[in-house]
Design a protein around this nucleic acid. Structure first.
Lengths: 148, 148
DNA sequence: GGTGAAAGAAGGAAGAG
DNA sequence: CTCTTCCTTCTTTCACC
């Protein structure tokens, strides 16, 4: 992984739909080697995926972070696997320290939120949770006006 | 916003690089109206942007969440604006309750982390912080093997 | 890493329901 | 007013240098 790879990652991290040809222009290479580099970074797991950042509030949904504390004898990998089966859990983060994990969840309303948190507790692996409800958010680099 | 819009959002939320033609196939429309719907959703701010999800550890970097508590007289929009100027802050979430905000940050090492947290405190708006260091993470729907 | 050709996708215009 | 069907242009992908 060299400076060009890092430059490509930087561009994709903020604008995942940028055409390879445009990335190539910006890093000073032709399109073919850039496509090869991106494919290599995907296979190596450096790029885990490409996602659209949504304003969940505008589609009438509720976004939240839930901090999870595990029982002393529980492996976090075990819980990570269990929570993969809850479709409301969009992202899972294993944390060093307290809490043990944080998940980002998207639900339709507070009743739904409660059901999801209860489902997490019912795994028997979770000692406690604390849920942070998101009111507003931004991520670096919004959508640019389209070129014409 | 109808059922087709929601279906499009669902697809883009997990696979942001899916071609419009493929989305069209999955929702049962032709490509042109799907493209117009996506453009409309972007303009309405429902789609805020497209980002690559990276394994920061594999590029030798450190990912963390910092929870921020504000002084009683501080508006969260004010802090949101100040933190936009820190390039290490990738995402900002305004929270209902305690803490007041959460940011996702990416830094090169713990020294860098300390400098960023100090920079947040030096704004004078921040009453306290708690930083959660990410050891591992997943997001729903990883990269698929490419079609041939 | 670059080149060139073939396949595929995007964006725009015209027309049907 | 929204979807469809072309059509043109740009992008991606692949074999090869």
């Amino acid at each position: 992984m060299d400076a060009v790879d890092r430059q490509i990652l930087e561009l994709l991290a903020s604008h995942a739909r940028t055409p390879v040809s445009e990335i190539a222009r910006q890093v000073g290479l032709s399109a073919a080697p850039v496509a090869r580099r991106i494919e290599r970074l995907e296979r190596a797991g450096v790029i885990k995926g490409y996602v659209a950042v949504l304003d969940e509030g505008k589609s009438g949904r509720l976004e939240a972070f839930t901090e999870i504390r595990l029982h002393g004898d529980t492996d976090s990998a075990e819980v990570s696997e269990l929570l993969r089966h809850l479709p409301e859990v969009r992202q899972y983060f294993t944390i060093a320290g307290d809490p043990d994990a944080v998940v980002r969840i998207v639900v339709s309303d507070v009743g739904h939120l409660q059901r999801v948190v209860n489902a997490m507790r019912r795994t028997g692996k979770v000692a406690g949770t604390k849920t942070l409800i998101v009111m507003d958010s931004w991520s670096r680099q919004p959508i640019e006006p389209r070129a014409h």
